[in-house]
Design a protein around this nucleic acid. Sequence first.
RNA 1: GGAGAAGUGGCCGAGAGGCCGAAGGCGCUCCCCUGCUAAGGGAGUAUCUGGUUUAUCCCGGAUCGAGGGUUCGAAUCCCUCCUUCUCCGCCA
Length: 425
Amino acid sequence: MLDIKLLRNDPAAIAIELKRKGYHLDVENFIQLENTRKDLQVATQALQKERNIRSKSIGQAKAKGEDIKPLLAEVADLGDKLKAGEQQLSELQAEIESIVMGIPNTLHEDVPDGKDEEDNVEIATWGEPKQFDFEPKDHVDLGLPNGWMDFEVAAKLTGSRFVVMRGAMARLHRALIQFMLDTHSMEHGYSEVYVPYMVNEDSLYGTGQLPKFAEDLFKLEDERDFYLIPTAEVPVTNMIRGDILDAEQLPMKYTAHTPCFRSEAGSYGRDTRGLIRQHQFEKVELIQFVKPEDSWDALEELRGHAETILQKLGLAYRTVILCSGDTGFSAKKTYDLEVWLPGQQKFREISSCSNVGDFQARRMQARYRNPETNKPEFLHTLNGSGLAIGRTLVAVIENYQQEDGSIVVPDVLKPYMGGLEVLKP
RNA sequence: GGAGAAGUGGCCGAGAGGCCGAAGGCGCUCCCCUGCUAAGGGAGUAUCUGGUUUAUCCCGGAUCGAGGGUUCGAAUCCCUCCUUCUCCGCCA
């Protein structure tokens, strides 16, 4: 959520900023609604004030034993007028709120202009795309013959975009999770949390998935309006919803492993093969809560933490900064890490690290007490994948494959593989 | 799943239709006093929001788990929901 005061003061300037993100803000409509709201609110509050004064005097008269009948007659029609005004006002406020909740975050000035992912800008690379002296297979061809990956069984169990993994592959998948959690919690200063995989609507409003992106989510058939989480960002970030933290508690860093559930509505036909785009995948997430002045440094740090994982795994990657049109709804600035996949001869997104600024904090009413002003102020939130497990598995097996279809276990994963050094078909 | 109890400021806790945004205590901040320590005295100390502009000040409005309702007036009465606790049942 943007600062409503900024929006009121200069909606035109905000509209120009939002245009970079491809969002059209109807300034005239907004100003008109705001003006109506202001009039209505002033009028309603005046009525409330009168009601309060009169009620108080009735109480005082009654205490003195005076006849209150004439006083009651005076306020007879006040109640109806007030009720009508209050209802009108709350409807209008709800309308304004729904507009404001649907407005994306503004961008950092570093973010390059652009329309879509074609315009993202590469800012760094690490490692060299691996050269093979044979034709490298993609992860599906590596996984299928051994029964390591089974998409048909998964389709029988559930449907498309699911997988069953077996044996050493399932273990390698698990090893990645352990390795990442251990690295972030023991070397990068994050505290590990275990969180619910279902959340309520308030949480999804808090991080920005609702109200706009309901179609991307799986909603449970249940009167409680629970949703499966699309990312650990939702439960972990919402842990501090409604809180006022002490300044000394910041920065707060959390890491969590969770499955992520995404409906992938609108991506029919894209990445239909293999593990790249599934309805259910695992992810190790990094979340930071920081003071406003620290969030840009924190973004660089967080990105470094995600990059460390790729480096330790020895996987070549490039870092891109998302252009204005590709940056997500809540983010001020986002780096994507793209890993080299020999099977596709392409870099593919494996992590996304964003500084959200105070956008989610506003929605969540998540604040800290600024010792200088002694006032509660919105903190800043950041999130990043560290990393997406399914795609990391893809990268590992494609990059560590050998001509006979076996897969060498990267050194850092060996402690988690019970002595297994090569996955043999 | 059944029966019962309870949700009030940073914390504890009073409050039972009006003078209650809320006693009292603890904690915290500032000041005074005491040579230091210990103790004592005084003042302050919720959040959101409107007028209203960057901020202060001032004057309003709202908020006592959430949402509805009754009433001139609700922390207080009624309804629904959520959460916590106790007992029973079931269960990984």
